[in-house]
């Protein structure tokens, strides 16, 4: 019973991960991870090394602004 429950839980987690990824909800997490890896972490940015990390709100605004400048086609 417990095993079944665990399997269901991990299955549900897998689906949630997939849906998040396909819809692009993980974009901010990916950005933060990238920033941490290349600019030496969020706090380092504030110390003047590289560009500061964007807040979540700033990031999503920036993302739609980029889409505005570089629209992507959707197929028929």
């Amino acid at each position: 019973m417990r095993a079944v429950l665990a399997a269901v839980r991990s299955g549900a987690r897998g689906i949630a991960w997939f849906v998040r990824g396909v819809l692009g909800e993980d974009a901010y997490d990916k950005y933060v991870a990238h920033h941490a890896a290349t600019h030496g972490g969020a706090e380092a940015g504030a110390c003047g090394i590289g560009e500061p990390v964007m807040t979540e709100r700033e990031f999503w605004r920036d993302q739609t602004d980029r889409q505005q400048k570089n629209p992507q086609n959707r197929c028929c």
Binding site: F18, G21, V22, G24, A27, K30, Y31, V32, A33, H34, H35, T38, D62, Q63, R66, N70, Q72, N73, R74, C75, C76
Partner: peptide
């Protein structure tokens, strides 16, 4: 070219879904 925005490494299964959603439409 990773910039954490337009160029970002994406899991192949997620990208499959993403690509499929972009190509499939009413056609």
């Amino acid at each position: 070219k990773a910039d954490g925005k337009d160029y970002a490494v994406t899991d192949r299964r997620v990208l499959f879904g993403h690509h499929f959603a972009a190509i499939a439409g009413a056609g």
